[in-house]
Design a protein around this nucleic acid. Structure first.
Ligand SMILES: [Mn+2]
Ligand SMILES: [Mn+2]
Ligand SMILES: [Mn+2]
Ligand SMILES: [Mn+2]
Lengths: 156, 156
DNA sequence: GACAAAAGTTAGACATGGCTAACTTATCTA
DNA sequence: TAGATAAGTTAGCCATGTCTAACTTTTGTC
């Protein structure tokens, strides 16, 4: 029976983890940030193609809130990564790999947003927070969100 | 009565937002990433001081999974930002501002972890995902998490 | 079809946050 | 207390993702 000195009802307890486990956690976050640019771009490109017929750098820049040269540079990185196909001065297309990644990202994005909405959060906040959160949600957590969402839909 | 062609039970609908709103969302994510290093460091420093008596670069490096020179560089940034006080080759202390930030971050971190745990997620996954998610949780969402947690604790 | 406007690219700069190699300082131990 | 070991720093490199300024290409209009 360790943990004797009980101190008046502390609702949370800081779990202390092994240093390596903690380090791995931070490494996971850094990795997530490395994939983030690609994920947001292909997701957006897929949506632009669907809703506007094509994906143009100007529009990508406008939606992401960055300047056109940033888009040019990043698109060429995506091309090098085999996610998009494109010739200079023309619209941007997704490769099969790009389309696959985009679909996975869109699905994940929607689940995160819907989950936040189910908590009573307003649409604007849900979208904003989801835009960052989505990249840090593991498969396990995504499934938990889906599960909670299902419960919510049955219940209310 | 718009939206005529109903297609077999689509559980999610992609909300299309104004370009500026979307851009603001991405800008928010970028800002969150700018504060992330400082937040993770002060949080960890506070915990090391509490549990080990002092915060040493080696230990910070080990826990973050980075090399010592990275810590040196980042600590000097934190010092420039007024979050940390320290002399070369000595342990690291938090300023009042640093302590305040650390407390807010620790609280937020705990809430996110507890919330994920309440969804049935295992501890290791909860901690890992929370490490990234915490930086993208607005006040609104944090409150919603707390609320859900309260419900959960009452219920089960 | 010429030319103006819009879209896109290139070049070059900058901040951030990682790294290694080599050096300095502090701590431990025989 | 000397010498070895551990801890910490410095210098310099790199990738990422942002920007501005200037140039090129495409598009739209008269
Ligand atoms: Mn995103
Ligand atoms: Mn997204
Ligand atoms: Mn974190
Ligand atoms: Mn993030």
């Amino acid at each position: 029976m360790t943990k004797l000195q009980s101190h008046g009802r502390e609702p949370f307890e800081t779990v202390d983890r092994a240093p390596e486990a903690q380090a791995e956690g931070f490494a996971t976050v850094r990795q997530a940030h490395e994939s983030e640019m690609a994920e947001d771009y292909v997701e957006l490109i897929a949506e632009l193609i669907e809703t506007r017929g094509e994906a143009r750098p100007v529009e990508i820049a406008e939606r992401l809130g960055v300047k056109p040269p940033t888009v040019t540079k990043n698109i060429s990185r995506l091309k090098a990564a085999g996610l998009v196909r494109r010739e200079p001065y023309r619209a941007i297309f997704l490769t099969d790999a790009g389309r696959e990644l985009a679909e996975a990202c869109r699905r994940r994005h929607r689940i995160v947003v819907e989950f936040l909405l189910s908590l009573g959060i307003d649409e604007e906040t849900a979208e904003r927070d989801a835009e960052g959160i989505e990249h840090h949600v593991s498969t396990t957590t995504l499934e938990a969100f889906e599960q909670a969402l299902k419960q919510f839909r049955n219940h209310e």
